[in-house]
Computed example of a mutant assay.
Amino acid sequence: MSEIPVIDLIREVRDAFNSHDIEKILSMTAEDSVWTTSSGIFRGKAEVRRYLVWFFDGIKNFTLHEIGIGTVAKDRWGVSEYYVTGTVDKKPVEFPGYSTYEFDESNKMKSKKIIFDRLGLAEMIVDDIVSKKVVHTVAKKVQEGLD
């Protein structure tokens, strides 16, 4: 790995996400990058671009805020803990998340995994009675499994 520390690279990615700069994010992404998200696996820059366009269209005013462990790194790998604020369907949302990163020898993202609470997000944005009932039932079943 060159002289650029992984933590600086991750924070540069975060800043590009916060400015919704798809081109900047893609410039930091390897051609054969694999992104794993709760919405699917995206292989290569064309698929990552498709994911980013969809993502920023779905969450308006998207902003990552570093929390907890913040950003830690070892060798070419790093982890970032954050919470997200934004709006979905004109409703304010806030939820925690984690991302893991692997960078190649050219300081490009070779892989990125994005993990966040989709059920909690769904609970924040549903507003019709049927959707609320479905999400509440799923959340209750999850909680019962924990008890």
Rank of each mutant, 00 (worst) to 15 (best):
K132Q: 15
K74Q: 04
G58H: 00
H136S: 15
S38V: 13
A30W: 07
N107K: 07
V135F: 14
E23D: 14
D127S: 15
D75A: 03
E47T: 06
D128P: 12
D104C: 06
V138I: 15
K60G: 00
E81N: 02
I4P: 04
W77F: 02
V72S: 01
I67G: 11
K132H: 12
E31M: 03
I4G: 03
F62Q: 10
V6D: 02
K108M: 10
V84I: 15
S27L: 08
T85S: 08
T71G: 07
R76N: 13
F42M: 06
R14G: 11
D15R: 11
D117R: 05
K108V: 02
G44P: 11
G120A: 01
D32V: 13
L121R: 00
E66N: 12
I4E: 07
L121F: 12
K91H: 05
A122W: 06
P5N: 09
K45N: 02
M124T: 05
V48W: 06
F116C: 06
P96I: 10
F116H: 12
Y101I: 11
Y101F: 15
I10C: 04
I7E: 03
L64C: 11
S19N: 13
D21G: 10
K112I: 14
D117E: 03
A122S: 13
K141F: 14
Y98G: 02
T137I: 08
G40P: 01
K112C: 13
W54V: 01
A139E: 05
Y51H: 08
W54G: 03
K133M: 08
D147W: 15
E94F: 03
T85R: 12
E94Q: 05
K90M: 00
T63L: 13
K91L: 09
S33G: 08
A16T: 13
F55K: 02
F42P: 00
V72L: 09
V84E: 09
E81R: 01
F116Y: 14
E47M: 13
E105S: 14
K24E: 04
R50G: 01
F95K: 01
H20V: 11
